[in-house]
Design a binder for these strands. Structure first.
Lengths: 125, 125
DNA sequence: CTAACTGTACTATATATATTAATACACTAA
DNA sequence: TTAGTGTATTAATATATATAGTACAGTTAG
């Protein structure tokens, strides 16, 4: 279900957080859907259950999922407004692109292209 | 010269790397300009000289600056092509923005706005 | 009730990274 | 020669990441 790169410098739990959100954005996971249990997911990607638990706790902290002890983990309703600092985190990356000689149009094209790529995997059921 | 947030989770040396690049992009630092010495900069922002040295070493590794033992550190010529993975790093951030309900136009507008803000501090001498 | 499944908590360990600290070395320029 | 460069080394500390094993608390199906 999720693809983890164990050699990446991005922590495993962080990769999981990103992929769950991406799956929701793409409609592969819908509000009310159950996520795999901590132990099952840990077994399938061959990491420690604690690592998966950490990812789920972070997702719950962000309000993305709801966990119920004894029952499982469900995708939460998508909030109307999300407090995100994603925009601010783009600043050093865009500085990089400018340094690399990209024009304003090229930068926005890159953003648009990535946007489309994310939406590409969308499930239009 | 540089503003460091000691409470940020971003490592000090990484903040320095970003700010040097930003200053170059804005024209505040030009090829051939000298950067403050490791010890002076360390004293002015009140961090260990080794931390500044690490930032300079990273910048040299990226080809942004040239260091000469005994002389100092100079801003390098801006290369024609820069190998950057900044675009790929934008992917999880744009996923965040989509999750937060941003449309494609809003995402590209954010990128454009940040681009302008970076250029705003430019020195058009 | 029992068994099997949920998430959670805790301790211990290992590794890597980040930072400080102090010292020493090699080179350059006044 | 002296004062200023960057660099290297070693040690110590703190934090983040991940594993491992165990145990606890709640839920659900038999």
């Amino acid at each position: 279900m999720f693809k983890i790169d164990l050699r990446s410098s991005i922590p495993i739990y962080e990769q999981l957080v990103q992929q769950v959100k991406r799956s929701i954005v793409q409609g592969l996971l819908k509000p009310g859907d159950a996520l795999p249990s901590v132990r099952k997911l840990a077994a399938s990607i061959e990491v420690n259950p604690n690592t998966v638990a950490k990812a789920y706790q972070e997702l719950e902290r962000q309000g993305v999922i709801i966990t119920v002890r004894g029952k499982g983990t469900l995708v939460n309703d998508i909030p109307k407004t999300v407090d995100t600092d994603a925009a601010e985190k783009m600043r050093p990356l865009i500085t990089e692109l400018i340094y690399a000689g990209k024009t304003k149009e090229e930068v926005t094209d890159i953003a648009a292209k990535i946007y489309d790529e994310i939406k590409e995997g969308q499930n239009n059921a």
